[in-house]
Amino acid sequence: MENNVIISIQGRQSFEDQEPEVIELVTEGQLAQDGEDGYTLSYQESELTGLEGTLTTFQVEPNRVTLLRVGEVNSQMVFEEGRRHLSMYNTPYGALSVGVSTRKMKAQLSDAGGSIEIDYALEIDHAVAGENLFKIDIRKKGLTIRQ
């Protein structure tokens, strides 16, 4: 079953000797159960994120989250706590080798929504490109958020 949902994303990227950069985004998307204990969350990127024309999908399984982007930017990033994954990040300007080392990950989803939190280090062409943390809150469209 697919649900229309409201997705609130907060991302923080830190670089050595610089103030962290924080972005926040609220958008509409779809949440669907995928198999017995997995979920798929997807939404269209906008001009605000600089990825307009790209569909972003999170495939959430126990112990693993895969981020897929298809469109103007094509990429796949795999998050597993305590593991490092390499992938290619294809942009209109060329391809980059991207390494993702996940320090902490928590994903709790149900048909009503839930949350995903991932803390990871990013390498681009084998050079550390920053520390990242993103939190995603998902709720069914029309439901209010409890604080």
Rank of each mutant, 00 (worst) to 15 (best):
I124H: 00
E123Q: 13
T91A: 08
L122Q: 11
D137H: 09
Q13Y: 09
T66Q: 14
G38A: 07
P92W: 02
P92N: 09
S115T: 09
I138H: 01
D137W: 04
R69P: 11
I116C: 08
E131Y: 11
F58D: 10
A95G: 05
A107V: 04
R103D: 03
I118Y: 00
M77A: 03
T40A: 04
R139D: 03
D119A: 09
R12Y: 01
S46V: 03
S101W: 09
R69T: 06
V22T: 12
E45K: 05
N74Q: 12
Y39V: 04
S46A: 10
S42L: 11
G11H: 03
E28M: 09
N3Q: 15
I6Q: 07
S110G: 14
A112S: 15
Q33L: 09
G114W: 13
R103L: 12
P92I: 06
Q44K: 15
T54P: 04
P20D: 04
I6R: 08
D137Y: 06
V78C: 11
I7Y: 03
F58H: 10
E24G: 07
L86W: 09
R12E: 14
Q147R: 12
G38E: 10
R12C: 05
D34T: 03
G11W: 00
Q59L: 13
Q59D: 09
V5D: 05
T49H: 12
T144I: 05
N63S: 13
Y89F: 06
A129P: 14
A121G: 04
P62V: 09
P92A: 01
E28W: 00
M88T: 12
V60F: 10
Q44N: 12
G99S: 13
E36M: 09
R84H: 13
S14C: 10
E72A: 12
G142R: 04
P20G: 08
V70R: 12
D34K: 09
E81D: 02
G82C: 10
I116R: 11
L143F: 03
E81H: 05
E19H: 11
I124T: 14
K104T: 05
L96R: 12
Y43K: 04
E61W: 03
G71V: 05
K141F: 01
N132F: 02
D137F: 11
A121H: 04
H126T: 08
S87P: 08
T56Y: 04
L133Y: 11
G11C: 02
F79I: 04
V70F: 13
I23V: 13
T27R: 12
P92G: 06
E123W: 14
K135P: 00
